[in-house]
Design a protein around this nucleic acid. Sequence first.
DNA 1: TGCTAAATCTCGAAC
DNA 2: GTTCGAGGTTTAGCA
Lengths: 255, 255
Amino acid sequence: MHKYKLLLNPSLDETVHVVNEALKKGFLSLLVGLCRVNYKGRASSVLGWGERLVIIKRDGSVLVHRTWDFQPVNWQPPGSVLQASTRGRNLTIRSVRLKPRESLEIEFEKVFSVLVMDLVDEAEFTMYASEKDMQKAVMANPELVEEGLRPLVKEKEVEHGFIDVYAVDREGNIVIIELKRRIATSDDALQLSSYVEEVKKRSGGRGVRGILVAPSASKKALFLLEKHGLEFRTLNPQKCAELVESSSKRITDFF
Amino acid sequence: MHKYKLLLNPSLDETVHVVNEALKKGFLSLLVGLCRVNYKGRASSVLGWGERLVIIKRDGSVLVHRTWDFQPVNWQPPGSVLQASTRGRNLTIRSVRLKPRESLEIEFEKVFSVLVMDLVDEAEFTMYASEKDMQKAVMANPELVEEGLRPLVKEKEVEHGFIDVYAVDREGNIVIIELKRRIATSDDALQLSSYVEEVKKRSGGRGVRGILVAPSASKKALFLLEKHGLEFRTLNPQKCAELVESSSKRITDFF
DNA sequence: TGCTAAATCTCGAAC
DNA sequence: GTTCGAGGTTTAGCA
């Protein structure tokens, strides 16, 4: 951390100065105090007086956090334009987004602490076990779904959307595979069904199967699959990520 | 604010003590320092060394924020069980969630500041212009959609889900209304289409219309509506909220 | 820029 | 406890 500034029980004028300065320099600001919040834009919201944490980031995003809940109670996304000012006896922070037009107003009656910092963070963030990882794993190791399966195309476009994996089974049937990294829902089953119906229309009498592949599925999803003559296979996204990882490692080792 | 504690450049042992104490008492903790983060559970992620803000809330939720982005880079939802400890020369904060099993590990090499507070926040949070508001408005003022429309049921159950508003038009046709508070997508059009098809099967030859009602719609959504013989009406959720508000006020005034 | 689909989606309500 | 659907969803990828 190169620079920081800490104020305890600051005057509102002092706070305005420090926050506007932080905004100009692109520093991170944390404010804790007694405030109320109004939002108007895609929807409207009102939050009465209470003690909260307000975070102002260098990209213009604003977060209002209560002492509970993962989600901020109010916020403004990156790119919003923000200004702090004193009006009467209170401090107001106003943030406006242009597209879509929406505005957030935080009014402080009392600020307990202000912490402004120039944090240094150059690290990369990497995630594994996404749906893309499952797709790669199934393309490279189709036996994860079924012995003898031959994947032909991924992301095959059809009228309603995209088929995750388009394959052919041992007996020459077309196999439509829908992948989900989470518990499959009835929506997922219906989506697969619509893909299968569409492919059936153009398959010229060739057999068409549909397989929903996910770590698990809801009861209604399983019921709908059964009803539409579709199948379900269990597949753990973490296992897929490990496979993708180890195979890319093997390639790296080779060179 | 009843109580708070602030540490600047604390030792890691001191930090462990204060954080565990805060957890026990259900206070909000803010930590700023140099850390790295690993997550494993529904997915996996790795984040290298960098300076960040860590928020620990009284319900057990944990947030790791970088100086940019609206979203936390890593997190743990409410109900997770957390513990701080020193291992070797570093401070580790470990948070575990049981269902689904996932764990977050934050390792601090250096803590710049710790702020622990007992924030008081009893205020209510209220939101307007939800889809429910649109539903109420259309039930009470069906002319928002079409002159002469008579709404019969809301949340009518059909095989695939629930019809937002089930109505009859001037000419006695059944009208299926699907409401969206945001720009309508092609999925929304297809959902409406499936409702209409299902109702047609049981309508005994009676005319069935489908209307998608939203502030606007994507091109593909409009194309699909056209293709399936469905209709679109513009309706602003904010306007609906105002109507609902003013009518409930009228009722209040009456008593 | 608009649009589509994934997300460690989260969150709440209904069952 | 499970499931389902809304959300100021956000975000990234791609046309």
